[in-house]
């Protein structure tokens, strides 16, 4: 069982207020004389307060502190406000890349047909070029894929610089 006295904090408060022992009730003084808990409370409070009174403390002025806190609050508010914009930009960029790839996918048959037709005409005009044209028949699909990759790369780079600038 921990010894406990209801006067302990009352006595410590008197020490903090500088009213111990001279300006306190004689009954309380008599109680403290007979109470080990209260005597210890007086000792600890007096020692700690004495140490604090004599300590060297350099805190910023209230105006300086207010200014620093205000600047920090503003910076955090601006960062918080910018966060959804960055997210939106990222989503918009992803949508852009998706649209480019879809359009290229839709155009792929048309482009393949056009390239095959050009290759056929060249083969009819120059018969010796036939083996080369057979190879060229596979070129249109490769061109579409390469084009899509280049466009996706360019779009990603553009988005990166756009977001970095923001």
């Amino acid at each position: 069982m921990v010894p406990d006295c209801r006067h302990e904090f009352e006595v410590a408060a008197l020490v903090r207020a500088g009213r111990w022992p001279d300006a306190c009730e004689p009954e309380l003084r008599a109680h403290v004389d007979g109470c080990a808990e209260c005597r210890e409370a007086v000792t600890i409070a007096a020692l700690l307060l004495e140490a604090d009174r004599g300590a060297e403390v350099h805190v910023p002025s209230a105006a300086q502190m207010w200014w620093r806190l205000a600047v920090r609050a503003r910076l955090e508010r601006e960062q918080a406000a910018a966060r959804p914009v960055v997210w939106l930009q990222g989503i918009a960029a992803a949508c852009g890349v998706g649209v480019v790839l879809t359009v290229l996918g839709q155009l792929a048959p048309v482009l393949s047909g056009a390239a095959a037709s050009v290759a056929g005409r060249v083969a009819a005009t120059v018969p010796t070029a036939l083996p080369a044209m057979e190879l060229a028949g596979r070129v249109p699909s490769l061109l579409v894929v390469a084009g899509a990759l280049v466009l996706a790369g360019l779009a990603s780079t553009a988005v990166y610089f756009w977001v970095a600038d923001e």
Partner: peptide, 8 residues
């Protein structure tokens, strides 16, 4: 000595 120093 602490008790004496603390003023109790």
């Amino acid at each position: 000595d602490a008790r004496a120093r603390g003023g109790a």
